[in-house]
Measured scan of single mutants.
Amino acid sequence: DIEITTNGEEDAKRVIKELQKRNLEYHIEVHGNQWVIKVR
């Protein structure tokens, strides 16, 4: 598993777009303004 910590929603959406392009499965956890994306 890979864990990507982003700085808020805009940053997270940019990362998610890339993950979707590669058809990767991911899970999002929001901790305040930090979005942690866990990639399987």
Results as ranks from 00 to 15, higher is better:
Asn23Leu: 06
Asp11His: 12
Ala12Lys: 03
Glu25Lys: 14
Asp11Ser: 10
Asp11Trp: 11
Val36Ser: 03
Val30Leu: 07
Gln34Cys: 14
Ile2Tyr: 15
Ile37Lys: 00
Glu9Lys: 07
Asn33Val: 07
Asp1His: 12
Glu18Thr: 05
Thr5Pro: 05
Ile28Val: 13
Ile28Ser: 02
Arg14Leu: 12
Glu10Cys: 05
Thr6Trp: 03
His27Leu: 11
Glu29Trp: 05
Thr5Ala: 07
Glu9Asn: 04
Ile28Gly: 00
Ile16Arg: 01
Glu10Val: 08
Lys17Phe: 11
Asp1Ser: 12
Lys13Trp: 14
Asp11Leu: 08
Trp35Met: 04
Arg22Phe: 13
Val15Cys: 08
Glu25Gly: 08
Gln34Trp: 10
Ile37Gly: 00
Glu9Thr: 04
Val30Asp: 02
Asn33Phe: 08
Arg40Ala: 11
Thr5Gln: 09
Glu18Asp: 08
Asn33His: 09
Glu29Cys: 03
Glu25His: 13
His27Ala: 10
Val15Glu: 02
Asp1Cys: 14
Thr6His: 02
Glu18Tyr: 13
Gly32Tyr: 03
Lys13Pro: 01
Leu19Gln: 00
Trp35Asn: 01
Ile2Trp: 15
Glu10Gln: 09
Ile4Asp: 01
Glu29Ser: 09
Ala12Glu: 01
Ile4Val: 05
Lys17Tyr: 11
Gly32Thr: 03
Val15Ile: 15
Trp35Pro: 01
Ile16Lys: 01
Glu25Trp: 11
Ile16Pro: 00
Asn7His: 11
Asn23Ala: 08
Ile16Ser: 02
Lys21Asn: 11
Val15Arg: 02
Val30Gly: 02
Asn23His: 11
Gln20Pro: 01
Tyr26Phe: 13
Leu24Asp: 02
Ile2Thr: 08
Tyr26Ala: 03
Glu18Trp: 15
Asn23Trp: 04
Gly32Leu: 04
His31Gln: 11
Asn33Trp: 05
Gln34Thr: 14
Asn33Gly: 11
Lys38Ser: 09
His31Pro: 01
Ala12Phe: 11
Lys17Arg: 13
Leu24Glu: 04
His31Leu: 10
Asn7Glu: 12
Ile16Asn: 01
Asn7Arg: 10
Tyr26Gly: 02
Ile28Leu: 09
Asn23Glu: 08
Ile2Leu: 13
Ile2Glu: 05
Gln34Ser: 10
Thr5Arg: 15
Gln34Tyr: 12
Arg40Phe: 15
